[in-house]
Amino acid sequence: MTTPTDYVHGYSTHETRRLGDQADTLAALLHSGTAYPAGSRVLEVGCGVGAQTVHLLAASPEAHFTAVDISADSLAQARTHVTEYAPDAHISWHQANLFELPFPEAAFDHVFVCFVLEHLTAPRRALTALRRVLRPGGTLTVIEGDHGSTFFHPHSAYAHATIDCQVQLQATAGGNALIGRQLHPLVTAAGYEDVVVRPHTVYADRSRPALVNGFTRNTFITMVESIREDALAAGLMNPSDWDRGIADLHRTATAEGTFHYTFFKALAVNPPSR
């Protein structure tokens, strides 16, 4: 798994707030249909600051959760956030690398992975490693975005170029911001069965102000804006073109604009050992 310094978006307070905005805004879209039975053992890999954890707990208050992240700082923030939200939740916390999880074989009934694979240099190997701790017949849920699915009005080549800077920087760091479209072959190649992938589309216009603010402005545009210095230092764009691109992205969040993005959610089963 990546080390903390490999996380392309950084570990700032600003990024923590962005992750929370994203999770809260998209909870109904991304977590729909994700609920675990009472008493089931659920592993959340790459829990980060707990932005998704609180929504998992809300949907499955009687399940027993184990949250893992490689960053001690993120894990501490997650523990604080979740304790404030659900002080009686059945949850334990572990700092660990997903390739070296400190759990016995078949320790969990379900595994949940959200916005993790995009940051890994070996996502298929990560999925394969998770099969060791998932019982035969247990389920895997994976959610990832795909920056190539972004389109908007008014159209702007400059705005698309700023997004492509994010894609290129993430690739340089060993990740893949286009991984959403690859989930089915990735999960299948890792040995899972009954793999089903479905798109979950975010569409925002003036009739959906919560999505315009929560996703277009506070999640997506904020994410792109945060890489300005890295993109310019890498020579991916010049300052004037970058600033024009960001201004054009903000136009998509005005009364005249629209914005579209697609997340992909995979469900699969860990088959019995043969």
Rank of each mutant, 00 (worst) to 15 (best):
Thr2Val: 05
Tyr7Phe: 15
Val8Ile: 13
Tyr11Glu: 14
His14Cys: 01
Arg17His: 13
Arg17Ala: 15
Arg17Leu: 13
Asp24Ser: 15
Leu26Cys: 13
Ala28Leu: 05
His31Lys: 00
Ala35Gly: 08
Ser40Asn: 10
Arg41Leu: 10
Val42His: 05
Glu44Tyr: 10
Val45Cys: 07
Gly48Thr: 06
Val49Tyr: 06
Gly50Val: 11
Ala51Ile: 03
Thr53Ser: 14
Thr53Arg: 07
Thr53Cys: 11
Thr53Lys: 04
Val54Lys: 07
Leu56His: 10
Ser60Met: 02
Glu62Thr: 08
Asp69Ile: 10
Ile70Thr: 09
Ser71Gly: 11
Ser71Val: 01
Leu75Thr: 02
Ala76Val: 09
Ala78Thr: 06
Thr83Trp: 08
Glu84Leu: 15
Ala86Met: 07
Asp88Gly: 09
Ala89Ser: 12
Ile91Val: 15
Ser92Gln: 12
Ser92Pro: 00
Phe99Asp: 07
Leu101Asn: 03
Leu101Ala: 07
Pro102Ala: 10
Phe103Thr: 13
Glu105Gly: 07
Glu105Pro: 01
Ala106Trp: 08
Ala106Val: 04
Ala106Pro: 01
Ala107Ile: 14
Phe108Leu: 07
Asp109Ser: 07
Asp109His: 12
His110Ile: 04
Val111Lys: 02
Cys114Leu: 08
Cys114Ala: 14
Phe115Trp: 14
Phe115Gln: 15
Val116Arg: 03
Glu118Ser: 13
Ala122Met: 09
Pro123Tyr: 11
Ala126Glu: 08
Leu130His: 03
Val133Phe: 03
Leu134Ser: 00
Gly138Thr: 01
Gly138Pro: 03
Thr141Gln: 06
Ser149Leu: 02
Ala157Ile: 06
Tyr158Pro: 04
Thr162Trp: 05
Cys165Asn: 02
Gln168Arg: 15
Leu169Met: 10
Gln170His: 11
Gly174His: 05
Asn176Lys: 05
Ala177Ile: 01
Leu178Phe: 00
Arg181Cys: 06
Leu183Trp: 09
His184Phe: 11
Pro185Val: 02
Leu186Gly: 07
Val187Glu: 10
Ala189Arg: 11
Gly191Pro: 06
Tyr192Val: 08
Val196Gly: 08
Val197Glu: 05
Val197Gly: 06
Arg198Trp: 03
Thr201Met: 13
Arg206Ser: 13
Arg206Gln: 12
Asn213Asp: 15
Thr219His: 06
Ile221Thr: 15
Ile221His: 05
Ile221Gly: 03
Thr222Asp: 15
Val224Gly: 02
Val224Gln: 04
Arg228Thr: 13
Glu229Pro: 00
Leu236Pro: 11
Met237His: 06
Pro239Tyr: 02
Ser240Gly: 06
Arg244His: 11
Arg244Pro: 00
Ile246Cys: 04
Ala247Ser: 12
Leu249Ile: 04
Leu249Cys: 01
His250Cys: 05
Arg251Met: 10
Arg251Lys: 12
Ala253Cys: 08
Gly257Glu: 12
Thr258Ile: 08
His260Val: 06
Tyr261Gln: 09
Thr262Ala: 14
Thr262Gly: 05
Phe263Met: 14
Phe263Asp: 09
Lys265Arg: 15
Ala266Gly: 09
Ala266Met: 02
Leu267Ala: 12
Ala268Asp: 15
Asn270Gln: 13
Pro272Thr: 03
Ser273Asp: 12
Ser273Gly: 03
